[in-house]
């Protein structure tokens, strides 16, 4: 099993908060983006790879490939950060027995079908149900933009 140091739901994926704050706080050297759509998009792959700072490798995988990847034995010193756009992916990983102790809810933009959930988090009813199921599996979920912010337990927001 790969060494997962951080898991975050954030539909802007790699952006300022991730680059200037989170990867400075944790010894991350690999960012795994799990998104079926993106894994087919060569241009976006180039953009995300180019946006990562020196020393950080970005890999974009489909959900199925990501599961296989995470099950592999870790390379020496490899520390993975998982980035996904929606909670359902996390749920799927948990169902496949990939252990994730803690999920950070960072950003979900407003769009059709979603309502404001908390500050910059908008979510549909199905997504909120998914939050619930993730937490029922014993995974802790917190809302936190950057490490310096106070962590808010998502349970208290439901």
């Amino acid at each position: 099993m790969k060494n997962i140091v951080l898991t975050r739901i954030d539909d802007r994926l790699i952006h300022g908060q991730v680059v200037t704050a989170w990867i400075k706080q944790y010894p991350i050297n690999k960012i795994l983006i799990i998104d079926d759509e993106l894994s087919k998009n060569k241009l976006m792959e180039r953009i995300y790879k180019a946006a990562a700072p020196i020393g950080i490798e970005v890999i974009i995988k489909t959900l199925e490939d990501a599961k296989a990847f995470l099950m592999e034995a870790p390379e020496a010193g490899e520390n993975v950060m998982i980035l996904v756009k929606v909670p359902e992916i996390i749920e799927d990983l948990l169902n496949s027995d990939i252990p994730i102790d803690k999920v950070i809810l960072g950003g979900m933009g407003a769009k059709k079908g979603r309502k404001t959930f908390n500050r910059n988090i908008s979510a549909s009813d199905e997504e909120i149900e998914s939050f619930r199921r993730i937490m029922e599996k014993g995974t802790e979920m917190i809302y936190q933009l950057v490490p310096g912010d106070k962590a808010v337990n998502v349970k208290s927001l439901l």
């Binding site: 539909d11 300022g16 680059v19 200037t20 998009n41 953009i47 946006a51 700072p53």
Partner: peptide, 18 residues
């Protein structure tokens, strides 16, 4: 638009603010 906004924010925040 939505693909570029994140990565450019990462670069911009690092250079301008960082």
């Amino acid at each position: 638009k939505s693909g570029l906004m994140g990565p450019l924010a990462g670069i911009g925040d690092t250079i301008d603010g960082g």
